[in-house]
Amino acid sequence: MRYAALATVAVAVATCVAAPARAQDVAAPSRPSATATTTTASDSALEAQTTAVASTLRCPVCQGESIQDSPSDLARQMRIVVRDKLRAGNTPDQVKAYFVSKYGEWILLDPTMTGLNILLYVIPVLLVVGGLALVAILVRRWTAPETTTQ
């Protein structure tokens, strides 16, 4: 079976991907006491939500980086604001709206799907859909019998 060798390689590759992920699952609840953070287990959902929101906010003092990625002081402080607001019960959209009210729409790395911005989302879809239709038409035409060639 010639796929056997490939399958073995694939499984070996997979174990390597899977290993760290599983290790993390185990490590998360039973963190060594000497670690610096004092987060509780329930915070992991909050952390995930903070990361998700912070990834969509642009760091004002960097260029193009999100506040999640930027190592700058302001980005770190803004992450804390995001976390605090989420913890206080704000929805992700409310947190984003807060930053928009302070910094303008500029701060959103993911433009809102409203008004002119819709073009930004519609054009790529139209390109692919229109392109697929075009390719279908061309292939039909180019494979048609000689007489119908125009």
């Binding site: 004002p60 003092v61 002081d73 302001l74 402080q77 803004m78 804390i80 604001v81 302070k102 910094y103 303008g104």
Partner: peptide, 13 residues
Amino acid sequence: PGALTAIDYGVYG
């Protein structure tokens, strides 16, 4: 502390 007021005022530099 924490630049909370600065962020509230949308300070970027």
